[in-house]
């Protein structure tokens, strides 16, 4: 049931997609907010939450890639043009990479920081620093890298979301439906018409 056999994504892939999407968006908002908040005690606590949820994204993203390797993914809908498929695949690959690279860069910035603030995952589990030599320079580098990657991926999120909504509301196809726990509109899609394209 949860394997990506049909034209639809399986339940595991759907759950991972939306959990990561919600956490990643939340992290973008939290990251933006916490770096601008005036109250320094609040800022400290928010950054600790940001680190924990960010590392959770990293873990889930790794699981998601492993799951993709194990379970595969349904083929692209045949209604899509080559260009559409290529651009969708590119944006999706970049987003997948972002869910790994953005938290990794965050972890690197924390590890390279001269502040040496430990990361206690949700206040419970000590996460070691990455083996980087702390310096003002290294911290600035990773901080900029983390911010650039994060805001860059926000642009990708917008493109990805716009495409999904366009397909759903304007083209009225199954592109969004198949990553939702909803039946696809094309009844034939369920019975494996797309099998030969795998």
């Amino acid at each position: 049931m949860s394997r990506n056999r049909d034209v639809s994504f399986g339940l595991t892939a759907i759950l991972l997609h939306w959990t990561i999407a919600a956490l990643f968006l939340g992290e973008l908002v939290l990251g933006f907010w916490m770096t601008r908040v005036k109250d320094m005690a609040l800022q400290f606590e928010l950054i600790q939450w940001h680190k924990s949820f960010g590392l959770l994204v990293l873990v889930l993203a790794v699981l998601r890639i492993l799951w993709r390797i194990v379970a595969g993914r349904p083929p692209a809908l045949p209604t899509l043009s080559r260009l559409e498929r290529a651009s969708a695949a590119t944006v999706q690959a970049l987003l997948l990479a972002a869910t790994i690279l953005v938290p990794l860069a965050g972890w690197a910035l924390v590890s390279a920081s001269t502040l040496r603030i430990p990361t206690l995952l949700f206040g419970q589990v000590l996460i070691p620093h990455l083996p980087l030599i702390p310096s003002g320079h290294a911290e600035a580098f990773w901080s900029r890298g983390h911010a650039l990657l994060a805001y860059g991926s926000a642009v990708l999120v917008l493109a990805h979301t716009a495409a999904a909504l366009g397909h759903h509301f304007l083209l009225r196809d199954d592109v969004l439906r198949r990553i939702l726990p909803l039946p696809t509109r094309d009844p034939l899609a369920r019975v494996g018409d797309y099998g030969e394209q795998r």
């Binding site: 109250d39 320094m40 005690a41 800022q43 400290f44 001269t114 502040l115």
Partner: peptide, 14 residues
Amino acid sequence: GEPRVEDFLRSNAV
């Protein structure tokens, strides 16, 4: 030893 820590300690956080 680290100006950011000192500013933090002086702030209303501490």
